[in-house]
Design a protein around this nucleic acid. Sequence first.
RNA 1: GCUGAUGUAGCUCAGCGGUAGAGCAGCUGAUUCGUAAUCAGCAGGUCGCGGGUUCAAAUCCCGCCAUCAGCUCCA
Length: 647
Amino acid sequence: MADRITITLPDGTKQEHPNGVTSREVAEAIGRRLAKAAVAARFNGVVIDLTRPLEEDGELEILTFADREGRDVYRHTTAHILAQAVKRLFPDVRLGIGPAIEDGFYYDFDVKGAFTPEDLEKIEEEMRRIVSEDLPLERLTLSREEAIARFEAMGEDYKVELIKELPEDAEISCYKQGDFIDLCAGPHLPSTGRVKAFKLLNVAGAYWRGEESRPMLQRIYGTSFEKRSELEEHLHRIEEARRRDHRVLGRQLDLFSIHEEIGPGLVLWHPKGARIREIVENFWREEHRRRGYEIVYTPHIAKSDLWKTSGHWDWYRENMYSPMEVEGSEYLLKPMNCPFHILMYKSETRSYRDLPLRWGELGTVYRYERSGVLHGMLRVRGFTQDDAHIICRPDQLEDELVEVFDLARFMMKTFGYEDFDVMLSVRDPENKDKYIGDDEGWALAERALARALERVGFEYRIEEGEAKFYAPAVDINLKDALGRGWQGPTIQVDFNLPERFDMTYIGEDGREHRPMMIHRTVLGTMERFIGGLIEHYAGAFPTWLAPVQVVVIPITDRTHAYAAEVAGRLEEAGLRVEVDYRNEKMGYKIRQAELQKVPYMLILGDREMEQGTVSVRERRKGDLGSSSLAEFMDRVLQEVREKTVNV
RNA sequence: GCUGAUGUAGCUCAGCGGUAGAGCAGCUGAUUCGUAAUCAGCAGGUCGCGGGUUCAAAUCCCGCCAUCAGCUCCA
């Protein structure tokens, strides 16, 4: 074994150190500030404890809270502190798992009953005590037998289960802090005192290992940060998300409602919500026409045999409503639109010259969703997809996909979603029987999607096992104004339904050929999309979408007639206007219009009436001074025309 | 569907064994006002639904329904 080893730092500089040096010592050699900020290290690609001795040459990167991995280590240690605190206060609980997640961490506990908010406060207090005790975290490795014996003795059945599933020859590591020991791959912070700011957020049930058949554990969620101020900021963001809740805004802005009397997951679109939807739908239709689509309509129910042919009856039944009987035949409410479009295709003999056919439909479908998953407008049981099916020849497939991705990008940009993640969902290679169709078809479809994605320049991730039962898919995840992800466009390449329905076209050679089919939505559904828009814009819709674009506010009833005249001119120009004739003070009317998040207010008093002007107030910005009506109209009409988004 | 919590006026919430309360919204009247709430009066509830305990239930118990936070699932 060499006495000295060579450490290469990220900037390429090399340092000599004694064999067995720790990354903490290397960090100290680099600088005090780095040593203080260090939470873990990456050595030859593996994230390790700062206290692990380095015993070979290698590349070393010191990780801090600013790094994703560093943050995870920091929060993972916080999760251990949580578990230790819970064990001190409730010795009978058994531990599940406790990883770091996106914005924090959680730990699962098997406990009689549940934790109350008061319990959480007590646990937090105990956690603070553990932090102030500044207990060092020690890594120990055990043999499989030792580990099983040890955790069995502690009654930690779940941990024993985990150990037994580790590979036979795996080195089993545990971390010990004071009286607490936990099975854990690590790495961890050097001591509990390093955790500065944390908060427990909520408790919820979670199945052991995410399986419904396993026991339900109590999961405590929390988060932690290096600085108090960062924690405050994070809590503020959570508050902001609450403020944007589309269910709350939907009520305040009178956009939609859901009623127990009607049924869960069934949405009523009030006039203002419907107006937004109408604008979105009209824009959608126009854009589709421009891009060579035809719009079609299909019924809401169809005989069950159709759904047997399509495969839905066998593969999708748990999402479908029970059959209804009509004149001796069974009918089913449609969960998708595709079979209708297919029969439309089959209504005549098609030539290769006819393809591609692009048929779009704002199709309302019904799917049974388990009661616990329903959520405002975002997860409902009856919804309208902006669906379309492109039927094309195999040689047209890739170009058509490129067009679809381009349309999807255009739509997202128009609505102000600048950022998005793209996933290519393919079959689970382990579970091919969950899908219909043969290997060759799947490979072809998956390849076409990947090639088209590369052509439009989308970076994407491959997700195994996320494909639909009939086709691989590209799913696009939108990032909203708060950086949260939303289900956006989905595009699927399908060779199965053409087969099942025996779709054909006559080729140049005079023989029958099988077309390919693309299923796609670019908005998703009207419910989810507009629910998402409400949160993205925090209810303050851009002018082109706002249900009311201008509120005219006469100051006294002397100016009512002038207000009516101004409103009339705006309406003639196609703007959506309301006049607040109520017998209230101007300040009250302004407040109401601000709360309704109307983009513009026109304040009309004696002065404006005499000069024939309007006094303009912009939402959230305040008084813009007076101008001529024509000037104001130009400004607003331009915003509408250009679909200006100011998030 | 599962775990936990919640369900009182249109909305937000108080009341938690003795026969239902506030603010906002609504209605009526007064006020005619210059950039985020004028004043006064009136009206509004089989306390989610069904059963039970009790002299007495919004309040305690049981069942159901719905909502919320998650889990699982998804457009």
